[in-house]
């Protein structure tokens, strides 16, 4: 009872998101990130009720436009939308006019003619969401664009870390795996450094992007150095489908040098959290014993994804402040 009273006294520094879209973590201030995470805490409680539904987005239409395969993100968004009482529409590549040669912009404009309020977009091209943001009146939520950003994944990762560690500032977070092709990495390093965490990225030299250091993170190819004294170890999938060259000799060798095993994990702090945005390649970036072990919060990440996406949908439904009311 006493915790509740101390909590209601605090008013956050920022009380609304003043953006039309969520294109990336780049556009968010630390205060806005904190607002999303605080709102997600309230949203998480909705998922524990006997009736897991609130009328907040009644009458709003949300289109889930997925040009890439996705189980977790698409279902997570859809559950989040339904829990907020929005009407949802799912469009997947195989069944859309895209197979007949329609461009992304034309698809979006045609959908927009039916007046949706928000479009959740997953696309294999970096910047696809920015294109839609310019031509659409609807709010655009980036559900992963190429190798660019995946902001809701970074937000749910931060929510999961904050839930266990109370705060992000001062934590050492090791991010290990296919750094080059990872939009999760690009969103996560921006979010974590904005919130004051120390990030160390690790992978084969061929998979470390040259621009990564400008975000103020350290990089290494020695996995033991990355894991040492880490509070959080986040593993990234080896994205074979995006690899056109030979980045490392074999998956077996990758596991031998970089794979997260119980032995390597002993170098981290005793209360380390193991995270993976999914889908996992067991025996490549992560050993099964670690994925299913006591330090793993991988399924918590999935559960928290719904609450975080509810928070984003709710906060964006207000629109940008400076826009003219239509």
């Amino acid at each position: 009872m006493t915790t509740a009273s101390s909590e209601i006294d605090q008013k956050p520094a920022v009380t609304a998101l003043r953006h039309k879209d969520l294109l990336g973590i780049t556009d968010l201030t630390p205060e806005e990130i904190a607002l999303v995470l605080d709102t997600a805490e309230a949203m998480k409680e909705v998922g524990t009720r006997p009736i897991k539904k609130v009328p907040a987005l009644r009458g709003k239409t949300v289109v889930n436009l997925f040009f890439e395969p996705s189980t977790r993100t698409r279902t997570s968004f859809e559950i989040a939308e339904k829990r907020l009482s929005a009407d949802t529409l799912n469009i997947a590549i195989g069944t859309s006019s895209v197979v007949k040669g329609e461009t992304l912009a034309d698809t979006a404009l045609n959908l927009e003619a039916m007046s949706p309020d928000m479009i959740v977009l997953r696309h294999s091209s970096s910047g696809a969401c920015h294109l839609l943001s310019r031509i659409c009146r609807s709010a655009i939520i980036n559900a992963g664009d190429g190798m660019h950003e995946h902001p809701t994944q970074a937000l749910l990762d931060a929510f999961t870390i904050r839930e266990r560690k109370k705060q992000l500032a001062g934590l050492k977070v090791a991010i290990i795996g296919d750094l080059l092709h990872s939009r999760v990495l690009r969103s996560n390093i921006q979010l974590l450094t904005k919130m004051g965490a120390k990030v160390c990225v690790c992978g084969p030299p061929t998979l470390i992007p040259t621009d990564v250091l400008r975000f103020g993170v350290s990089a290494t190819s020695v996995v033991e150095d990355a894991v040492a004294e880490a509070d959080v170890v986040m593993l990234l999938r080896i994205q074979l489908e995006r690899m056109e060259g030979a980045y490392f000799p074999s998956l077996r060798e990758y596991f031998r040098v970089f794979g997260m095993t119980e032995e390597r994990l002993r170098l981290a702090k005793s209360d380390v959290m193991i995270m993976h945005p999914g889908p996992m390649n067991r025996g490549v970036e992560i050993a099964s014993e670690v994925a299913d072990g006591p330090y793993s919060v991988i399924l918590d990440q999935v559960a928290n994804g719904v609450a975080v996406r509810m928070a984003v949908l709710y906060l964006l439904a207000g629109g940008a402040e400076h826009e003219d009311a239509a």
Partner: peptide, 13 residues
């Protein structure tokens, strides 16, 4: 959702 545009009120637990 009465206004087309405007900041959303703060949600608490």
């Amino acid at each position: 959702m009465r206004h087309a545009v405007g900041p959303q009120p703060l949600v608490r637990r």
